[in-house]
Amino acid sequence: MKYIKEIMILAICLMVLGFSASVLFGIWCMYQEGVSEYRGLQEFAEEESEADADDSGVVKKKTAVDFDSLKEINGDIVAWIKCKELGINYPVVQGTDNSYYLTHTFSGEEHISGCIFMDCVNKPDFTDDNTILYGHNMKDGSMFGSFSQFMEETATVFLYTPEGEFIYQIIDDQMVDVSEGKYFRTVYSTEDFASLSETIAAHTGNALVRGEHLLTLSTCNGNANRRHLILCKEVTETNEKQMEEGTAGEVIQIEAGQEETTATAQKGAAKETQEAETK
């Protein structure tokens, strides 16, 4: 009788172990489906060497994106985002709301990885004061899942569009409450921009310059009320020259003790922050 009980316990343990292994394998396969799709799409955004080397003798490379082919797969595409330091190399879409691409890939398949997408209220040409891109915090590090491992002091984000290339420099990396609406605006009043500039300056020591175009990368972090944001500012010939000459530009200054302006986050951003969950 004793041996029968031991055999039954062993059998139950083996069944539980087998079930757990099958579940983990299923999850792994599901993740691989998403990774495989986006890896396949990368053939439409390949690096090409320029014919002439620069003054240092280094052959420059640029990314050429085949938007015509990508539009045949998904007409919602607006850009391609690439950042070596974050391991990001994905198409960017913009839907009519901030929920569809939480659960659908670039090809339209329903999948937990979703797609990198622009806030539905943003202008697709990246001319807003702040362009917001959302992506899932995938446990395998794909999509925006690398944010928690980001340890660089600075990094460059490239955005390629049918009209041209935009270059951004990462300036801040922090966790914020979804109620902090200043991070989720696409257009800023002078007061709102001043409030954002003060907050970033307190965190990084560097204030913003009024008129700079910002890029905010947003992902979830396991807490429905918090978001992990990476903030970037556009690199232009003007601010490159200012940095070289040591000029500060038109920096927004905030008087000590000034009350921070508060407001509700945009409807689109709020919808994303309520529905997105850590994957």
Rank of each mutant, 00 (worst) to 15 (best):
I252L: 15
K267S: 12
T105F: 04
E272M: 09
F158K: 07
D55S: 07
G257K: 07
D52I: 12
K123P: 00
N225G: 13
A79L: 02
N223I: 15
D140G: 08
E212I: 12
K82W: 05
S189G: 13
E6Q: 12
L86F: 09
S146W: 09
E198P: 03
E250K: 13
E244N: 11
V92E: 02
F44I: 04
M138D: 11
Q242D: 14
L208C: 12
G135I: 11
S36M: 10
K271D: 00
T273K: 02
A265Y: 01
T216P: 00
N206P: 03
D172V: 09
E46F: 06
D119N: 02
S195Q: 07
L231G: 05
K182H: 05
N137W: 10
Q169C: 11
I132M: 01
A53G: 04
F147I: 07
F67A: 03
T161Q: 01
V121R: 00
E72R: 14
E47T: 10
T236A: 12
I88P: 03
K182P: 01
C13I: 13
M175K: 14
K123V: 00
T190N: 05
D66L: 09
A207N: 14
G246C: 11
C220S: 05
A11M: 15
I73W: 07
N130V: 00
F193G: 04
E85D: 11
D97Y: 15
E72W: 04
N137P: 05
K241A: 15
A21S: 15
K62C: 04
K62S: 08
L133Y: 01
S146I: 10
T216H: 03
I230G: 09
R39Y: 09
E260T: 14
M8N: 08
K271A: 00
D55G: 02
G145R: 09
H203I: 04
S56W: 07
K61N: 15
E275V: 04
L217C: 07
I254R: 14
N98C: 06
V78C: 01
L17D: 08
G57K: 08
S22P: 12
E153H: 06
S148R: 10
C115Y: 01
G211I: 14
A270K: 04
V235M: 15
E85I: 00
A269M: 06
G26I: 11
M175D: 10
I252T: 15
E6M: 11
G145L: 08
T247P: 01
V178R: 11
K279G: 01
E50V: 06
W28P: 00
N225P: 02
A64I: 15
F106A: 05
S146G: 13
K123Y: 02
C120N: 05
K84G: 06
E198G: 05
Q32P: 13
G145T: 09
E245N: 12
S36Q: 13
C115H: 01
I4Q: 11
F25C: 07
E43F: 10
Q242E: 15
Y31V: 08
R39D: 12
E6R: 13
E50G: 14
G246S: 10
L14E: 03
G205D: 11
T264D: 15
S197W: 05
L217G: 04
Q266S: 12
G246K: 11
I171F: 03
E153P: 03
I112G: 01
I7P: 08
K241C: 12
I230W: 09
L159I: 14
F44G: 04
Y183E: 07
V235H: 12
G135F: 10
C115I: 03
Q42V: 09
G246R: 13
Y101E: 07
